[in-house]
Amino acid sequence: MSRFDLHGYGPLLLEGARLTVYVGVCAMALAVLLGLIGMWCKFSPSPLVRFVVDTYTTVVRGVPELVLILLVYYGVPTFIQDVSAHFGRNIYIALDPFTAGVATIGFIYGAFATEVFRGARLAVPKGQIEAARACGMSGPLTFRRILLPQMMRFALPGLGNVWMILIKATALISVIQLPELMRSADIAARNTRKPFTFFFAASLIYLAITIISNIVQHWAERRAARGLRRA
């Protein structure tokens, strides 16, 4: 039992876990939003728009998350500083770790969500859209009433996967000192000199988040398919 004594750092870990889930949810919301916009751009008639969104998904999926986090957190403020100095001004913007973390993780997984939504959009039969148009629905109304509810059924397994990868990727924000689960475990490990105990405890909390997510995903997928006839 002594090996799994948390030396009073249990609440710190739970606080870290809360922040991890919070960061994850915010980043996921951003990713879904970007994914929907990205999907819409992928079907745009304008080749320029399609080129931009293709570049986005290609580039983001080719660069490690860690490099992008460091690039945004350290690179963006210095870039703004350099550009403003070029125009004879001195603007200094410090990004806080939370904003930088959520923005970067959301931006990265927005690219993955774009591909998920693109696939889901293609899975909805064309006749559905034509029928909606024939009923006199406008573009946005068709999207909201016809396309989105049917797309969700196809998109949910993919989005579930994105969430699973995303929540684990939030551990990387600990390198820019956001006190989420990983960082809290690190602090506790340093202070007590019991690194194995605390990193193992942290891993079990991540495992618990994964298990709960699995259950929620299963429930959501069943709910999205509730209108489906089964033989």
Binding site: M182, R193, F200, S203, Y206, L207, I211
Partner: peptide
């Protein structure tokens, strides 16, 4: 276990955790 936890935790468990 290895798919449900972040790689960073696994790296820290092996590198720092072995110190225990």
């Amino acid at each position: 276990y290895f798919r449900g936890t972040p790689l960073l935790v696994q790296i820290f468990l092996i590198y720092y955790g072995s110190g225990q």
